[in-house]
Amino acid sequence: MNGMKEWTVGSHVFRREEPDLLWCTYKGPTRASDIERFVSIARDMAANDRVFVVSDIRLSTIEKDARELLSQSLRPEWLQGLVYVGADALQKAIVKAMMIALYFTGKCKVDIEFAQSEQEARDIILRRRQAQQGALDSAASAAAAKRM
Rank of each mutant, 00 (worst) to 15 (best):
T8G: 07
V9K: 12
V9H: 08
V9I: 15
V9D: 06
V9E: 05
G10F: 06
G10I: 04
S11P: 11
V13F: 04
V13T: 15
V13I: 13
F14Y: 04
F14E: 01
F14A: 00
F14P: 00
R15A: 10
R16T: 08
R16C: 04
R16M: 03
E17C: 13
E17Q: 14
E17M: 13
E18I: 09
P19F: 09
P19K: 08
P19T: 10
P19A: 11
P19V: 10
P19M: 08
P19Y: 04
D20N: 15
D20M: 11
L21D: 06
L22Q: 03
L22W: 05
L22P: 01
W23H: 11
W23D: 04
C24W: 05
C24S: 13
C24T: 13
C24Y: 07
C24F: 06
C24E: 11
T25Y: 03
T25V: 15
T25C: 04
T25I: 12
Y26P: 00
Y26D: 03
K27R: 15
G28N: 08
G28F: 02
G28Q: 09
G28D: 05
P29W: 02
T30S: 05
T30L: 03
T30Y: 02
T30G: 02
T30E: 02
R31Y: 06
R31T: 04
R31M: 02
R31C: 01
A32M: 00
A32R: 01
S33A: 08
S33L: 01
S33C: 00
D34V: 00
I35Y: 01
I35K: 01
I35V: 15
I35M: 08
R37L: 07
R37D: 02
R37P: 01
R37C: 06
F38K: 12
F38S: 09
F38I: 07
V39Q: 11
V39T: 14
V39P: 01
S40V: 11
S40H: 14
S40G: 15
S40P: 02
S40Q: 15
S40R: 15
I41V: 14
I41A: 09
I41H: 08
A42D: 03
A42W: 02
A42N: 09
A42I: 02
R43S: 02
R43A: 07
D44H: 12
D44N: 14
D44P: 05
D44Q: 13
D44V: 11
D44W: 11
M45H: 11
M45E: 14
M45T: 05
M45R: 06
M45Y: 10
A46D: 10
A46L: 09
A46N: 10
A47I: 15
A47D: 13
A47W: 14
N48C: 06
N48Q: 10
N48E: 13
D49P: 01
D49L: 07
D49W: 05
D49I: 04
D49H: 12
R50K: 13
V51C: 13
V51H: 11
V51A: 10
F52S: 03
F52D: 07
F52W: 15
F52V: 05
